[in-house]
Amino acid sequence: MSIALPPDLPVPHPIQAVIFDWAGTLVDFGSLAPTQIFVDAFASFGIDVGLDQARGPMGLSKRDHIRTLLDHPGIRAQWRERFGQPPGEPDVDAIYRRFMPMQIDKVGDYSAPIPGAGETLAWLRRQGIRIGSCSGYPREVLDVLLPIAAGHGIAADHVVAGDELSAGGRPGPYMALANVLALGIGDVRACIKVDDTLPGIQEGRNAGMWCVGLALSGNETGLTLDELSALPAERVAALRQAAGQRLRAAGAHYVIDSVADLPPVVAKIAGQ
């Protein structure tokens, strides 16, 4: 895949940091690892959750994601029928305990970089821009993913996990702002949040940052690179438009296909 990068010129405005999500943004084209594990974890309790349903709350911390799925009327009805009562917090805990070892076991299988991610990170570093990151993944999962990703050249200057902050996770601004503090950034307006999920874009907006949504590489389209490449151009265009509308409605200032397309947008934001 040929990646066209802008020249290595000084950024004309002091963009200080770009803060990335992980699955569907830097690694795991299609954001498949968390989605499939949610389906499998609920199935282990005899509850049928479709892939599209599992994708709905993507971007939230995993415990909040489970809680949101259990609030879905159809899933809630299944739970009541199977267990004789509506789901509660102990059930959230039980599913989370089932989910975690499954996710830890499988996350490495979905750790391939998004094409162009390494080149984009290298370009940002040449501009003197810091690289932050945050994820809905708990720290135990990131502890498995991050060394594998680093072996592929995908690494951030700082990483915040979805279970690390007592203030909470997305769509609140807390993980993005934790990156600002850790990286010593002087102005949130000099930061760009890049994410493939709606809560991740809302997180960036709530933190006062520029936000760039990813239409094709992550959760909003949910296809592998091979699946996407096999589609006719008009179908890809329709998926891009639909995902873009959702991401813009969530607050994205710009929408691009994948992280490979980010450098020209950073240069454009820097010039405003």
Rank of each mutant, 00 (worst) to 15 (best):
P90M: 10
F99E: 00
S111N: 11
M102S: 01
L70M: 14
P101I: 13
S166M: 13
P73V: 10
D93P: 05
Q85S: 14
Q78W: 10
A190R: 14
I114C: 08
W79Q: 00
R98H: 11
I131K: 01
L177F: 06
D71Y: 09
K106R: 15
E89W: 15
L183F: 09
P101W: 12
N179S: 13
D109A: 14
G168Q: 08
L165R: 11
Q103D: 12
P173H: 04
L70D: 03
F83A: 10
G128R: 06
Y174G: 06
A190E: 13
H152F: 12
W79D: 00
D71L: 14
R80M: 11
Q103L: 15
P90D: 11
V188W: 06
S111T: 14
V160K: 04
Y110A: 04
F83H: 14
I75S: 08
A190P: 02
P101M: 13
G116M: 07
L70G: 04
Y96N: 00
G169K: 04
K106A: 14
L60P: 02
V194M: 11
V194Y: 06
A94Y: 00
M102A: 12
R126F: 07
R130F: 07
L165F: 09
Q78S: 12
L198H: 03
Y137W: 08
G74A: 14
R80T: 14
R82C: 11
I104M: 15
R130N: 04
E140P: 06
R130P: 02
S135H: 01
A161D: 01
Q127S: 08
H158G: 03
G153K: 07
I95S: 04
D163T: 09
P86I: 10
Y174K: 08
E89L: 15
G88A: 14
G136A: 05
H65A: 00
G136N: 05
G136L: 00
L145T: 09
R126S: 13
A182C: 11
V107T: 09
R189S: 15
D71F: 08
S135A: 05
G184T: 08
V107W: 01
P87L: 09
L198V: 15
G88C: 10
A122D: 14
L198S: 07
G116N: 04
Q85N: 11
M100R: 09
G184H: 07
L121H: 03
I154Q: 00
G136R: 02
V92H: 02
I131A: 05
G59Q: 05
Q103V: 06
P73G: 11
P138L: 10
M175Y: 02
G136E: 01
H72D: 15
P199K: 04
P87I: 06
L183I: 07
A176M: 09
I75R: 10
S135I: 01
P90C: 12
L69G: 01
P199N: 08
P147S: 11
V160I: 15
R67S: 10
P147F: 11
G184Q: 09
A178Y: 02
A155Q: 13
V144E: 06
Y174W: 15
